[in-house]
């Protein structure tokens, strides 16, 4: 039987969000249900693993039902089940992996494992339906900061990564020190609009052995030292200026290193992915610098930057085409490396 389209059910539970989606041919989203837990977490100022796992268990089946319902389809009509198996919180990942395995086994459908970051990258295939590799993708979120050379749909090379804190984590921690709440990224983005990015010069770190690696821990310490210093002197904290200067320091290195990496590899397409890809200054600066260098820069809409299952289904579609399936020994791998197979090797 030859079907014209391939319909993938995607499942994502690696951190905060319980999400399920139905996507055809890796590009066309029929449904993308994200049950945001942000209200729950904001009480705690961050991700709470036990709460995250318990909420995933409660939400996973209703979310899957709702995704199928909204897509106007049912499980029998699905061609394959794609699920995030890492990296992430082990308890959270296990909920999605177990659900996907159960559905695949019960219906005898192919099971596909997806690396969370490869999923974020695939969000760009949904947002830009004619996008094809190769391109360079900057993946920046609460847990990840990577510059990835996407050689082909299933072939990746990491050109740069953070050596300490992720970019989004730095945003969250500085927002916490300034008392701006969680998540920190959008709060800092908002405050920064009223601040002077040149008010304070915070450090930009570059490594000799890999000029595309990031470090945000020293920047975080510099911002905290600056705030403590003002406090000691009894001065008011200029929140907007600190947000703007801090944000500028992060965005400068993210953009510069990504453009340089693309240049070195003679790539003219740059994509953004991950939660921090919603940051307005990052989008503007990347577009502008790409332009100046004869490159184009693309980014997904905010709903596809956050953790969602449509991107997992999109990524899973390309594995489906290649016949790369997981078996029922599939497990959650909290520190899964990019480009590794479903067994994590």
């Amino acid at each position: 039987m030859n079907k014209k389209t391939v319909k993938i059910l995607g499942i994502e539970t690696s951190c905060d969000e319980t999400s399920a989606a139905v996507v055809t041919d890796g590009r066309n989203v029929l449904s993308n249900i994200i049950s945001s837990q942000i209200d729950l977490h904001s009480e705690y100022g961050g991700v709470v693993p036990e709460i995250a796992s318990r909420r995933h268990v409660e939400l996973i089946l209703p979310v899957i039902d709702s995704a199928l319902d909204k897509a106007g389809t049912d499980l029998n009509d699905i061609d394959g089940i794609a699920v995030t198996h890492g990296p992430g919180l082990v308890g959270a990942l296990l909920v999605g992996v177990s659900a996907a395995k159960a559905i695949a086994a019960a219906l005898n459908k192919p099971l596909i494992s997806v690396h969370h970051i490869e999923g974020h990258i695939a969000a760009n295939y949904i947002a830009h339906t004619d996008l094809e590799p190769p391109f360079v993708c900057l993946v920046v979120s609460g847990g990840h900061s990577h510059i990835v050379l996407v050689k082909d749909y299933l072939s990746f090379e990491i050109l740069g990564r953070t050596r300490d804190d992720a970019a989004g984590e730095a945003f969250d921690k500085i927002a916490r020190v300034l008392g701006l709440g969680y998540p920190g990224g959008p709060a800092i983005d908002k405050w920064a609009k009223d601040g002077d990015p040149r008010a304070v010069h915070f450090p930009r770190v570059k490594f000799q052995d890999n000029p595309y690696d990031f470090s945000f821990s020293g920047l975080k310490t510099a911002v905290i030292n600056h705030i403590n210093h003002l406090n000691q002197k009894g001065e008011d904290i200029p929140v907007a200026d600190i947000c703007a200067s801090f944000q500028q320091a992060v965005i400068d290195v993210l953009v510069d290193y990504t453009i340089s990496a693309a240049k070195e590899h003679k790539i003219e397409k740059i994509c953004l992915a991950g939660g921090v890809a919603s940051n307005s200054l990052l989008r503007e600066t990347m577009s502008q610098k790409a332009n100046e260098n004869g490159m184009i820069s693309l980014y997904p809409p905010p709903v596809l930057c956050t953790d969602n299952a449509a991107m997992i289904a999109a990524s899973g579609y390309f594995s489906f085409l290649a016949g790369e399936f997981a078996d029922y020994t599939l497990n959650a791998i909290p520190s899964l490396r990019i480009g590794s197979g479903h067994n994590g090797l």
């Binding site: 951190c15 961050g46 991700v47 693993p49 990296p87 992430g88 919180l89 609460g142 847990g143 990564r161 953070t162 050596r163 300490d164 804190d165 992720a166 984590e169 921690k173 821990s217 909290p334 520190s335």
Partner: peptide, 13 residues
């Protein structure tokens, strides 16, 4: 391998 902050995943091994 590089040791990165485990704030997000709670634990890295």
């Amino acid at each position: 391998e590089p040791v990165t902050s485990p704030s997000f995943t709670i634990v890295n091994t």
